[in-house]
Design a protein around this nucleic acid. Structure first.
Lengths: 357, 357
DNA sequence: ATGAAAGCGCTAACAT
DNA sequence: ATGTTAGCGCTTTCAT
């Protein structure tokens, strides 16, 4: 029994308690209010006190306790970010852009990923709410918007990224998905392809639907029938792309394929290589997202590039704007995608030109 | 003047204040203390009250205010994570592992990246301290350990990941870098290569030094001289790998190259392709980190794989353990790397076998 | 087993 | 311009 006693003492290590405003106040011979004013740069403090307080704070190595401040002011300098897949470098770039802006604005970033799981996303969202973040930037992995409505009702500033949320009044930043897909497929058509397959992400994700739309429109624009049998849906993972490509190659194979997402593209390439097919000779490929490996592949990968970093920057700015003016009407900003022609689409070979980026 | 007035009101939108313990208490007809006890699962509450309180909380849709709780208990359920490069998928996997464990344990994750900049890292660290996180998991991008000492002195639980911190009493998880490099280079030597180049990350990063050591030891073990002129250092970026490879190819080129980091490998491949060299015929390559693209390259890339996810899991566990027992002596856990032989090293061609994973 | 009350560290009225 | 004071929402003695 006596042995249990000391074992219980394991909550937190004894550490020299951090100095508080009170101690700074004592040392400077002023009130805590004055300390607070000086430290938060309020106006109307005499130079003399101002100096004395700063001095005292420095001597004590005083660090503001943000928890206490947050509680008192009911605000926080942290923003929550929910992404669906932390291993997808696209989101890595997005987060990078967000963090850049946030850090410059003195905010910190709370990150969680939902792993494309709506339940987990909801938990993450609620945790952020409970933690009292100033706002949330998120990519939805759900088709259900009620949770977002709830958050909105609570007064939580929200910015939706990449995927469209229908019928909900929220700031949003997306890219021209269908236009990008259109450009890619039109390019392939111009190169003489007719049997152009598509490997696409899950249909419940808006970006997938938009990219499919662009694919279809490209055929329409060329007065060609849409080869619907060549459209494969897969989950967002690499293996999904691999299997979709296998399926495609088992039929009368397409002469070109447009892949609607980055990890999917990697899987598709795997499938192509496994069959010993050559790119772009046997099959031309255009992918989505210009990521580090695109230029290291042989042949270099033609892609529809999304301004991922800019997407993040824009989302963060949108949030900051809303924080500053909560009443402003929601904005939806759409950034441009851009077709980058390298060698995997066969443009070089067929044209003999180097129109590459 | 009158026009200014309304403009000033832009702090926070008016929102139906979230319910508090007090309101739950009123509704349940008990004291706030009881509510708190029930909600934090304290013992000694009668079943009746227990039920009434839960009911009331549910009806009000009560959400605990963590800020207030943190202030009162001087603890927090958030841990800070600092990584040097958010766009490096290796760290993505690590964070993924961390988040998995943390989420299961009811902690949330505060992420920031230093972009390999020690100053920025320091800012991130201090922000975490001010935010009152329960602990910090970080990959150092500095050779200076004084900041960590400071944090430690403050009582902040710390776990260092991937890179070794010399002479500092802190929990650590790393991998067998030199052994991995050794295995890779030995493999190349066994394949008959003698002029084996190395493209390595910055020498001030411990992992780079360890991998170089493994490279050297492999030659020593084979009683071969180390071709020091074939060792190139680069920054950790893709372009660094590209330029290093260019340099290598301008000399009497090596017949094989071992690249000490994932993005570097991508750059190196770019350099090889640009010269029209074939892999592994003209030059064999073994990279570091088994990432999504490794199997999609043609030929598939042989790599030294790190258990990135496991590294994250382990780091999080280490932190959780320390949180539970702050006094325990620091542990250093080393996880195994593993050579994965695919085709880029030429094993298939030279051996005619399929010893691939 | 339950309640009353103090107080975590800070800021913001309200005084002066 | 500066000090006094009252909380922010929660937990936790200390009573009962």
């Amino acid at each position: 029994m006596s042995a249990l006693m000391p074992k219980k003492r394991s909550k937190r290590i004894e550490t020299p308690a951090a100095p508080t405003v009170k101690q700074v106040a004592e040392r400077a011979g002023v009130s805590t209010a004055t300390v607070s004013r000086v430290l938060s740069g309020a106006p109307y403090v005499s130079d003399g006190l101002n100096h004395r307080v700063r001095e005292a704070a420095r001597e004590l190595n005083y660090q503001l306790n943000r928890i206490a401040r947050n509680l008192r002011t009911r605000t926080s300098r942290a923003v929550g970010v929910v992404i669906p897949d932390i291993e997808n470098p696209f989101f890595g770039r997005v987060v990078c852009g967000i963090e850049d802006v946030l850090q410059a604005a003195g905010y910190s970033l709370l990150l969680s990923h939902s792993n494309e799981n709506p339940n987990r996303e909801q938990i993450n969202l609620r945790t952020f709410l409970a933690e009292g973040v100033a706002g949330i930037i998120f990519t939805s992995s759900s088709t259900e918007t009620s949770e977002y409505e709830h958050l909105l009702k609570t007064g939580m500033p929200l910015v939706a990224v990449s995927r469209i949320l229908p019928g909900i009044k929220v700031d949003m930043v997306t890219v021209t998905n269908s236009e990008g897909a259109h450009a890619a497929v039109s390019h392939l058509i111009a190169l003489g392809h007719k049997r152009i397959g598509m490997i696409n992400g899950p249909a419940w994700i808006s970006t997938s639907r938009q990219r499919l739309l662009g694919y279809e429109q490209a055929f329409a624009a060329a007065a060609l029938p849409v080869p619907r049998d060549l459209v494969q849906h897969a989950d967002w993972r690499q293996t999904g792309g691999y299997h979709a490509m296998q399926t495609l190659l088992q039929m009368a194979p397409p002469t070109a394929v447009f892949v609607g997402s980055n990890l999917l593209t990697l899987g598709a390439l795997q499938g192509i290589h496994e069959r010993g097919l050559s790119i772009p000779g046997d099959i031309a490929v255009v992918g989505f997202d210009d990521l580090p490996w695109a230029t290291s592949l042989q042949p270099p990968l033609s892609v529809v590039a999304q301004p991922a970093f800019e997407v993040g920057v824009t989302a963060a700015r949108l949030l900051l704007d809303r924080l500053h003016d909560p009443a402003r009407p929601p904005r939806h900003i759409t950034l441009e995608t851009r077709l980058i022609v390298r060698a995997s689409c066969g443009a070089e070979i067929r044209h003999g030109s180097a129109s590459c980026t």
